[in-house]
């Protein structure tokens, strides 16, 4: 993770980034780097400091300690030069409600110094990309969540930023809009744009090329999803993960939690995922379930999910006495 500071391929870099509000430390010594063209998924519970990190990276908030740079420009000392490089889509999809879709786009275009033919061209591109054409004369306040998000996205992209920050872009929008947004994000990344996305959804995190997990102001995991899943903390020696399908899953769960050597068991729909000691064989599990009158057992070995990773790392942090 400790990338070479002069690596031109690193678009976002934080070193010991810290922000205190009076006595409360919202962000505590966050160190991370994001490569050009990466989709960085930034996860963590509400109030863990995700938005504060984004705000510091966008030059909206001064860090109390540490340094950060975007596109090789320091977010504190070179804010003015950095701003044209970045786009920012805030949690609230900040739009001018009383203005129409057309006027919002025109305004943001002009704000970034576009005018005349350049504004027209870019405007047409953005409308085509977001399919906003039928809504151009509609006031922003009358748009549904998904369309508001598209408009906010178009506004954030008006100046073709190299780095796009999205703060919970999929909160509260329908699954179709959510999927379409991710399709767009992959498209941007394939054209070399770097994306920094906060989210609560684990399935979105799985799609990112890099993820970071922030818990109680500290970054406790950061890297490629596959690399995180291979961490020894996530895969304790002498254990393995199993997916188990059976009748009466909840009853089965209660039974298996009593079995010595079963460290964790969680239900996912009609199956459950287990972390068990390798000493406990599949037959032992089948036997216990049969004793409880549960049949139709099907067991497969599985790797850890990102959720498993974050749960394991959060637990470990709790044990560490912090």
């Amino acid at each position: 993770m400790a990338a070479d500071p002069s690596d031109p391929d690193v678009m976002i870099r934080c070193t010991g980034l810290t922000r205190r509000f009076r006595h409360f430390t919202a962000v505590d010594g966050v160190t991370l780097s994001v490569r050009r063209g990466a989709i960085f998924g930034f996860l963590g519970p509400n109030g863990s400091g995700k938005s504060t990190v984004i705000r510091m990276l966008c030059g909206l908030l001064e860090p109390s300690g540490g340094t950060a740079s975007v596109g090789g420009l320091d977010v504190v000392r070179e804010t003015e030069r950095m701003k044209p490089l970045i786009g920012y889509m805030s949690q609230k999809f900040s739009l001018y409600d009383e203005l129409t879709v057309h006027e919002n786009l025109q305004f943001y275009g002009r704000l970034y110094g576009l005018n005349g033919a350049r504004l027209r061209t870019r405007y047409d591109e953005l409308v085509a990309m977001t399919h906003l054409a039928p809504y151009l004369r509609r006031r922003a306040e009358l748009l549904s969540g998904g369309w508001r998000q598209r408009l906010a996205m178009a506004c954030a992209l008006v100046h073709q930023p190299k780095v796009l920050f999205l703060d919970e872009p999929t909160a509260g929008i329908d699954p179709v809009a959510r999927r379409e947004l991710w399709d767009l994000l992959f498209d941007f990344a394939s054209h070399g744009m770097t994306l920094f996305v906060t989210t609560h959804y684990m399935d979105e995190a799985e799609r990112c090329s890099q993820v970071g997990y922030i818990h109680q102001s500290k970054l406790i995991a950061c890297g490629e999803p596959d690399a995180l899943k291979r961490l020894p903390e996530v895969n304790p020696p002498g254990t393995h993960r199993l997916e188990l399908e059976c009748e009466h899953v909840t009853a089965g769960l209660r039974t298996l939690r009593e079995v010595p050597g079963v460290r964790a068991a969680t239900v996912f729909g009609r199956s459950m995922r287990l972390l068990v000691d390798t000493s406990v064989s599949e037959d032992v599990l089948r036997g216990k379930l049969a004793d409880a009158g549960i049949q139709g057992v099907d067991i497969r070995p599985v790797g850890p999910s990102l959720e498993d990773v974050f749960v394991a790392l959060t637990d470990r942090m709790g044990e560490g006495g912090t």
Partner: peptide, 13 residues
């Protein structure tokens, strides 16, 4: 209050 000011601050204005 609406958060649009934050959006303006991110721009080069």
């Amino acid at each position: 209050e609406r958060g649009t000011l934050e959006q303006l601050f991110v721009s080069p204005l």
